[in-house]
Design a protein around this nucleic acid. Structure first.
Length: 597
RNA sequence: GGGGGUGUAGUUCAGUUGGUUAGAACGCUUGCCUGUCACGCAAGAGGUCGAGGGUUCGAGUCCCUUCACUCCCGCCA
């Protein structure tokens, strides 16, 4: 007989009745009747109830052993009487009558129980992650993560992609997030950087002629955490293809996501392919964000022209428009009968979020014509109200919120109002995965702080203007072949067709203030590689953690990560980051400066 | 770097207008219990009320400072 087990804890059934089995696992839960004791034995696969009577020589030991101790049990499989069958358990028709009992590893009193669904403080959960991971829900999330990664790997391989590893110790890149640096012992004063993404490497792989590449790639960025963003490190399905245009990438990626979310999405409906394509500009207008939650049917409208009319007397908005601002309208269906407190609540909340305020008007009908109620209703003529309702596709009994400010701020506020309305009015259907592509990102944006033109996304993206016309074009109007994949309000992936033309690369960087020498200096390898025959190529890099989070129905990335760091970028289980020894520092030629207070 | 929230038993929480010995449930310990599956019953142990300072005759409660965690902003090409 095997030393530890003949079966797992989810295997035995009536078929095994009468035979002797050996099981190993954790003591999940004990029910001690004094002279008769039940315990559930748990392993990765499931639970089996074991029973022992006081006549048994192991009885005292079993009574004393603490939950979560690991034990090996053997005994006869017996049928339960019909009134003691547990239908909630796979193995609930039988139980194991303990004939021998061995303790393999004892547990101390638990800082948090494995049994039950009670919530526990994250600090405790992270400190005792191995206990937290034994809990049913976490265990399932991590299994899901593994299955998702297997699915993706299999799919990529069957689609003709080759899986490669790229360096972890690499060079710092001057763009993007803050780098993690690793001191070099052999080159005192010099540092490696951990890759923020294998961006340049994967482009080199294309230039090296491998045609299609993918990798489940760790990415390191020294940025602060969020609920949907781990501090420090995360994983991407990094992929790149040669001789492709944007549409080719979409055609490869869409079926992957459709199948993945259909298979693992807990029966929620998934957007049919091809996914909707929304330009960045349209998305910012209609949804106030470049990661719209399309489960929410509310759309935002620009009503600047209506407010400008002579028969609208809203001077506050008119003044903002005169200063170059805009007015955005967010219709709130069937809310005109809501109490004043509802609207005041939104106004106060918006102010807390940094808005100047949130005007609103209630649409009612009189003799078939719209009239505007509410505090600012009186400032609109009947004609203006009609026009407003038409633009906003509003109906009787709808309310319309207004956000007026400079463009970016008006977009931001209208976007968060739309989100809040969708949620609070129960308009957002949470039984769906709504995918869309956000396309045509601007190549540049104006950096107000630095008073200069800067890249808005990836500087290696191909601009939608050719090299000949590039210098003649207003840089802020130049779009890029740059796209994001968005699902339910989360950015799932970013991607682009890359700029494979060194001549155009210099021009692109020049507009953002980099001379040819600087580009040669900072991207020496890239420029060199592009100068010896580079195929047109493009790809993307979906974030795996966020995908699993969506599939698991969670809104925190730590729920689907084995050993996450906390928000302060510390690993409470392993105790990182930690102080190096004097010897380590000496070898690395590093001296720690005391922080000034 | 900034803003919000939370912090009371091992854990989840309650704690009135500032007023006697800070409570409940789960967990733990002990005892009883042969059909439970959130077993039941009884008893018991367990508290620097995050920390420091202040106001007060008196502070878990009010004020100030600080720390931890968390959410958000900044940041994330």
């Amino acid at each position: 007989m095997h030393k530890y087990r003949t079966h797992t804890c989810s295997e035995i059934s009536k078929k095994n009745s009468g035979s002797t089995v050996k099981l190993s696992g954790w003591i999940h839960r004990k029910r001690d009747h004094g002279n008769l004791l039940f315990f559930d034995l748990r392993d990765h696969f499931g639970l089996t109830q074991c029973v022992i009577e006081n006549s048994n020589s192991f009885f005292k030991t079993v009574e004393k052993i603490k939950p979560e101790s690991v034990v090996c049990v053997s005994g006869e499989v017996v049928d339960r009487s019909s009134d003691t069958v547990n239908k909630d358990l796979f193995t609930g028709e039988v139980e194991v009558k303990v004939s021998s009992f061995e303790i393999l590893s004892e547990s101390k009193d638990l800082p948090m129980p494995v049994f039950g669904e009670q919530e526990y403080p994250e600090e405790t959960r992270l400190k005792y992650r191995f206990l937290d991971l034994r809990r049913e829900e976490m265990h399932e999330n991590i299994v899901l993560r593994s299955k998702v990664i297997s699915f993706l790997r299999n799919k990529m391989i069957s689609d003709g992609f080759l899986e490669f590893q790229t360096p972890i110790l690499t060079a710092s890149s001057p763009e993007g997030a803050r780098d993690f640096l690793v001191p070099s012992r052999m080159h005192p004063g010099k540092f490696y950087a951990l890759p923020q993404a294998p961006q340049q490497f994967k482009q080199m792989v294309m230039i090296s002629g491998f045609d299609k590449y993918f990798q489940i790639a760790p990415c390191f960025r020294d940025e602060d955490g969020r609920a949907d963003r781990s501090p420090g490190e995360h994983y991407q399905l990094d992929m790149e293809m040669s001789f492709v245009e944007q549409e080719d990438v979409f055609k490869v990626v869409e079926p992957i996501f459709f199948k993945l979310f259909t298979e693992f999405g807990k029966n929620k409906t998934v957007s049919k392919t091809p996914f909707r394509k929304i330009t960045y500009k349209t998305s910012m207008l209609k949804y106030g964000t470049d990661k719209p939650d399309l489960r929410n049917p509310i759309e935002i409208f620009d009503v600047t022209e209506v407010i400008k009319r002579k028969d609208v007397k809203l001077d506050i908005f008119k003044k903002l428009i005169a200063k170059g601002g805009v007015v955005r309208a967010i219709p709130a269906p069937n809310t005109s009968s809501k109490p004043r407190s509802f609207f005041d609540g939104y106004n106060n909340w918006a102010k807390e979020e940094g808005a100047k305020g949130l005007g609103y008007i209630l649409l009612e009908k009189n003799n078939g014509k719209f009239i505007g109620k509410g505090p600012i209703g009186k400032f609109f003529s009947e004609k203006a109200i009609g026009e407003l309702a038409k633009i906003c596709k509003a109906k009787e009994n709808d309310a319309i919120f207004f956000s007026s400010d400079e463009l970016k701020e008006a977009e931001r506020i209208s976007g968060i109002v739309r989100q809040k309305l969708g949620k609070e009015l129960n308009l957002t259907n949470d039984k769906k995965f709504e995918f869309c592509w956000i396309t045509d990102y601007p190549m540049y944006q104006y950096d107000e702080k630095e008073k200069k033109i800067d890249f808005s996304h990836n500087p290696f993206s191909m601009p939608q203007v050719n090299s000949k016309d590039f210098d003649k074009t207003d840089p802020l109007s130049i779009l890029a072949y740059q796209y994001d994949l968005v699902c339910n309000g989360y950015e799932i992936s970013s991607g682009a067709i890359r700029n494979h033309l060194p001549d155009l690369m210099y021009k692109v960087f020049f507009k953002a203030g980099y001379s040819k020498d600087e580009v040669n200096n900072k991207f020496e390898g890239m420029i060199k590689a592009l100068s010896y025959g580079a195929p047109p190529h493009g790809g993307m890099a979906p974030g795996i953690d966020r995908i699993v989070m969506l599939l698991a129905g969670k809104n925190n990335i730590r729920e689907v990560t084995l050993f996450p760091m906390n928000q302060n970028a510390q690993d409470l289980l392993m105790g990182s980051p930690s102080k190096p020894s004097e010897l380590q520092l000496k070898e690395l030629n590093i001296k720690i400066l005391e922080k000034k207070k």
